[in-house]
Computed example of a mutant assay.
Amino acid sequence: MRLALFTDTFVPQMNGVALTLGRLTDYLNRRGIEHLVFSPKSTADMVYSDPIRPVTSIPFFLYPECRLALPNLAAIRTELDRFGPDLLHLATPFNLGLCGLHYARKHRISHVASYHTHFDRYLAYYHMKAAIPLYWSYMKWFHHSCDATFAPSRDTLDILQEQGIDRLLLWTRGVDCALYSPDKKSVDVRERYGITAPYLLLYVGRIAPEKDIDTLSAIMKLLPDSVKAQVHWLIVGDGPQLHELRESAPSNVTFAGYKSGEELAQIYASADLFVFPSSTETFGNVVQEAMASGLPVIAANSGGVREMVSSGENGMLCAPRQPQSFVQEIISLVEDSDRMAKFRFKAREFALGRSWHAIFDQLLHDYEMIIDFRRIGKKSGFYSA
């Protein structure tokens, strides 16, 4: 099998989509599967190794972690003609995805897309609701010729099906349980940030409107004084609302900035509760990282997060954009150490069953099935709600 991957976000960019695709290419290398990756060039001086084919790009105004490529169509076409792919995977619906789509349709090659982000919901947060119908019209046009569209959660599959997108397949996400582990707990984290409160509450993610940061800010302020005295918040991440959140935050909040790797793993394992108010997630990688670290999760009852957090078993789900709902659950857990210990064990137990290797094995099987279906002129519905 020869695979060509088109994406407008890729490592070293640090977001869930880029990291997932980076892991996918690592897996393909280990399996000896020939592939090319057409991705944006993040900086002019960055050097990329084979099989990455970097493309000049500019930041996407709505979501700077995702870049808009400025591709040389003739050069890409020549590269693909020489490579002879069996399947094209269009990971994003922007400029590079369009290049791949055009080539696949013209040459009648198997092609799939993956849906990672609810950009329609982002438009609402950025006061662009009027553009939502246009967005879905474009998405239906983009996906209609694809042999399959992959989505990371059943909730997202249902949404796509409701919008008239068919031939849907589940491509969920794994987690590195060796990196993210309760064993990474360290007193250095509390010492580094000067935290002395009994309970450390953690948020990890982009600090932006679509992550319901306004809800997070309200939660911090609404906790009763008796609980505020027992907890300290650690906010890990960066984004356009950082200054606003920092200015309005109570005194028991520390901002750590962006973290990754072992340092992030230590922070997860050293916290007591993970609070995640975002209601726009197609999956929620940080939730699974927290669970692998043995953290109970208090999250919005929305999107792909609901398929990881089982309310009352390994965490609690709260009404989206309702700060008081989160406040009640935080108080409940802070006052019940036995319940918190049970959630810790169950969260880790869940994460241990989410192997990246098994997930990529299934994806590879799906690729092969799709190529075979195209060869015999068959298309399947794959998924039904």
Rank of each mutant, 00 (worst) to 15 (best):
W171P: 00
Y115T: 06
L160S: 10
S145N: 13
T117Q: 08
K129E: 13
Y115F: 13
W171M: 11
P133E: 06
L98H: 07
R154M: 12
A91P: 09
L169S: 05
S110K: 13
F150M: 02
L96G: 09
Y103I: 02
R105A: 11
V112R: 00
T117F: 02
P93C: 03
H111E: 11
F119R: 06
F94G: 01
L170G: 09
H107L: 03
A131Y: 00
F142H: 03
H107Q: 11
F119H: 09
Y125L: 07
L170N: 06
F150S: 00
L157T: 00
L157E: 03
H116K: 15
L98N: 12
S145L: 10
D147G: 04
R173P: 03
W171V: 03
L101Q: 04
K129S: 15
S145I: 05
K129G: 12
Y122Q: 03
A124K: 12
I132W: 13
R105N: 08
A148E: 08
Y115P: 01
S137D: 03
A91Y: 07
Q163I: 05
D158T: 07
T172G: 04
I165R: 05
G164N: 01
H143R: 12
H144V: 13
S114Q: 10
R105P: 04
H144G: 10
H144P: 08
G100H: 07
Y135G: 01
T92H: 06
A130F: 12
D147E: 10
S114K: 14
K140S: 12
Q161L: 08
A131W: 02
P133T: 13
D120A: 14
W141C: 09
W136I: 00
T156S: 08
R154Q: 11
G97F: 02
S114P: 01
F94V: 09
R108K: 15
L134T: 05
H143P: 00
C146N: 05
G97T: 05
H144W: 14
E162W: 15
A91W: 02
L157C: 14
A131H: 01
K140C: 12
S110T: 02
Y125V: 04
Y122S: 00
Q161G: 15
H144L: 14
L169K: 14
K129N: 09
A148I: 04
I109A: 08
H111W: 07
R105I: 01
W171A: 00
A124D: 10
A113V: 10
A151K: 11
H107M: 14
Y115E: 01
I159C: 10
Y135D: 03
G97S: 14
L170P: 10
L160Q: 00
H118N: 11
S145R: 10
A113Y: 00
G164K: 10
G164W: 10
T117N: 11
H118R: 11
W141V: 15
L168E: 09
E162M: 08
H107A: 06
Q161Y: 08
L170Q: 04
L157S: 12
H111G: 06
Q163L: 12
Y138E: 02
I159R: 12
P93A: 01
G164D: 00
C99R: 12
I132R: 04
C99Q: 13
H127W: 09
I159S: 13
G100V: 07
Q163A: 11
Y125Q: 01
R167D: 00
Y122W: 14
G164E: 02
W136M: 06
Y115D: 02
R108L: 11
W141H: 07
V112A: 04
F142T: 02
A130T: 12
F142R: 02
A104L: 03
P93L: 06
I159W: 04
P152Q: 05
K106Q: 09
